[in-house]
Design a protein around this nucleic acid. Structure first.
Lengths: 199, 199
DNA sequence: AAGTAACATTACTCGTGAGTAATATCTCAT
DNA sequence: ATGAGATATTACTCACGAGTAATGTTACTT
């Protein structure tokens, strides 16, 4: 009764998931046909329904996979205790870099969970709240200007990440490192040239 | 032969356009049914095809309407000649504010042209290039740090605008003015508190 | 008042694509 | 080697929604 059970099935299921992820990411939900997914996975239509109750169900599963990984990432990359002021830029840069790397690692899931899903707005709202919380702590500690709303800053940061992910990261034009350093440089120090700033 | 010709027809057409804009903005292209559009416009299905060759055609017309207005806006809001250094923040803030007001004025078109359309990425690319061009001029003039890529800054700015438009502007949570001043404050001066910056 | 565009309707077609019923094969435990 | 569950297939159904054919009505021009 307990053989190497379900191995083949799991493999088929995984193939379907991978094919679905790619199709959804490239064509969106409606343009993606179940018939195409199964073709890519080397199966036929009814096999699909052996593993998923509906087309929506696969999509949701992919969205949830993204959400779960995202939460895992955030959970593991909490800001640690007291930091020296000089270290703040580096720490922020590293955090942003880690995030870009995460997005780059699973491009299909990123496209689905961050841009295609109806839930995407909700997911980003969670993300923003978390970032705002972390930034507020740094602000309390005196590292950031006290007249800025960290909620707004978090929104801006996420907006920037979204934009750059779509136009630079996913197309492979720029690396997580270079994007992170440019973004953080801009956000921490601002655009104005020093002579005007330090006046 | 030349009566008050086409008046009724134009009105029906406008009603269809308006209904389509609202439906597309709220439900997206595929979830929007021609049957729903015509119902909202107080007409029946074939009347729709009296004015538009297809569902796609209305969508495209709305996207183009957005694009056209956007280009008009940009064309009219060119940066003028030499500005005093102290005026730069104000001018930038005004430009961003104008842009937010533009987006707020036609929320449905904004949603369609900036977020729903397949062409949206292309439209943003154009926009970014234009902003980058303007910012580069200011940079040449010494107002902005010379070590920043204005192309990247433009991308960041657009990313921020996208995000805030979706989460704050269109839902009516914040005004164009407050959003513009917060965004520009952040981008020009950065997040770091002064004691660290001026070190 | 009558002819003619313009504007609109009722009643269809028809492709597409999600999902299913019935059936077949493969693989392992006994 | 055989029965049983797991894995897959062939051959459908069926709803939905875009687009159309045929026809009717309105309103203005002469």
């Amino acid at each position: 009764m307990a053989r190497e059970k379900g191995l083949k099935g799991m493999e088929s299921r995984e193939r379907l998931l991978a094919a679905a992820a790619e199709e959804f990411a490239n064509r969106g939900f409606h343009e993606t046909k179940v018939s195409t997914i199964v073709k890519r996975a080397g199966l036929t239509q009814p096999a699909f329904y052996l593993y998923f109750p509906s087309k929506e169900a696969v999509f949701d599963e992919l969205v949830n996979a993204f959400r779960t990984r995202l939460h895992a990432l955030i959970g593991s990359s909490r800001f640690e205790a007291q930091v020296e002021a000089q270290d703040v830029p580096k720490r922020v840069r590293m955090a942003v870099e880690t995030f870009f790397r995460f997005l780059e690692a699973t491009p299909h899931l990123t496209r689905i969970g961050l841009f295609l899903a109806p839930k995407a707005e909700e997911i980003k709202k969670e993300l923003i709240a978390l970032i705002a919380f972390n930034l507020s702590a740094e602000q309390q500690a005196g590292y950031f200007r006290s007249d800025l709303s960290m909620k707004t800053v978090a929104e801006c940061l996420v907006g920037i990440v979204e934009r750059l992910t779509l136009s630079q990261l996913l197309p492979g034009i720029k690396s997580p490192e270079s994007l992170a350093s440019q973004v953080v440089d801009l956000l921490l120090y601002g655009m104005l040239s020093m002579k005007h700033t330090s006046a």
